[in-house]
Simulated assay, not measured.
Amino acid sequence: MSEQNTLAFTKKYGPWAVIAGASHGVGAALADQVAAKGLNCVLVARREDALTDLKNQLVDRYGVEVLVVTLDLTLDDAADRLVAAVADREVGLLIYNAGGDPYITRFLDTPVEDWCKLLHLNTRTIMRCCHAFGGRMVARGAGGVLLVGSQAALGGVRKLAMYAATKSFAMTLGEGLWAEWKGQGVDVLNLLIGTVDTPTMRDAMVRQGIAGALTMQLAKAEDIAAIALRELPNGPTLIHPDDLAESPTGSHSGLARREHVQRISAESALFIGD
């Protein structure tokens, strides 16, 4: 990215970025690349040691300010705690990368209390974060919301029923917010990804007895992060890697989803107003 483009990025999405789920993988890669563009970072996850290590790296490499917020995002009041920790810092970019499925089981094989934690993580907490930080961005007329999701959001999946359902909520929320905020200077992008080369993904594959779990070629977190930040202005949905083809086609392409959101929003305005 050129110096001019970096300055434009910082002006629109700075001076602070909140990265939820920043302890490893795509979240950590996003934090690194956001900091490289000059944004200060609020790093959020449960693992304080990993966040502190990342903080030290970002400060040393880029000279940015970094706030570590150790927080379990499945808690009922997680969003309130995060907003309180951020305080009056001017947040121009919200990245919600949390929400992986730690269970990967059939629905009835996991206690409902555990499913409720996943439900809070991918619905209540994400909604409240979008409301709190998105409201600040709309008020100032600039900003961005990046919701890192999954292709599971596109429909039900065996052994991922709750994960798919909650990711679908996040995707639909993001598309609606894109339609509401695109004329107010705030970009919204759902990034729907498949398998990514992270320790969590590798561990899950090993637990499931997948052949080649440790050697299979998977997309790299840093590549996913670069694509996400590049495509942030081009919401509402990017399906990786399908939409990177020269001519993506089919009803599940990001382009098709954008056209659907635009059409339905226009049709609905006849009955519910702009």
Rank of each mutant, 00 (worst) to 15 (best):
K55F: 07
T195V: 07
L229Q: 04
V68H: 03
M127V: 07
Y96M: 10
L75D: 09
H240M: 09
D243P: 14
G185Q: 02
M1C: 10
K117L: 12
T172D: 12
H120K: 12
T105W: 00
A31R: 08
C116Y: 10
Y163E: 07
G174E: 01
Y163D: 06
K11C: 08
D243S: 14
T215W: 00
P241N: 04
I210M: 08
T249W: 05
L67N: 05
V44N: 03
E180I: 04
I227Q: 06
K117Q: 12
A269S: 15
G254I: 05
N234H: 08
A31T: 14
F169I: 02
L30Q: 09
L94C: 11
L244H: 08
G254C: 07
P15N: 11
I264E: 06
R128F: 13
Y96P: 08
L75P: 00
G100M: 14
P241V: 11
K37F: 09
D60I: 04
D77L: 05
W115E: 07
V196T: 11
L232W: 12
C116D: 06
G143T: 13
L255M: 11
L39D: 06
R81A: 08
D114K: 14
R46D: 02
T249C: 06
L255D: 06
E175M: 14
D32F: 10
G185P: 01
V188P: 10
E259A: 15
G144T: 14
G134D: 06
G149P: 06
G144I: 03
M162D: 02
P15R: 11
A132T: 10
V64S: 00
L51T: 15
E48Y: 03
V91R: 03
A219I: 14
G254P: 13
T52E: 08
A179F: 07
S150D: 07
A132K: 14
G100R: 08
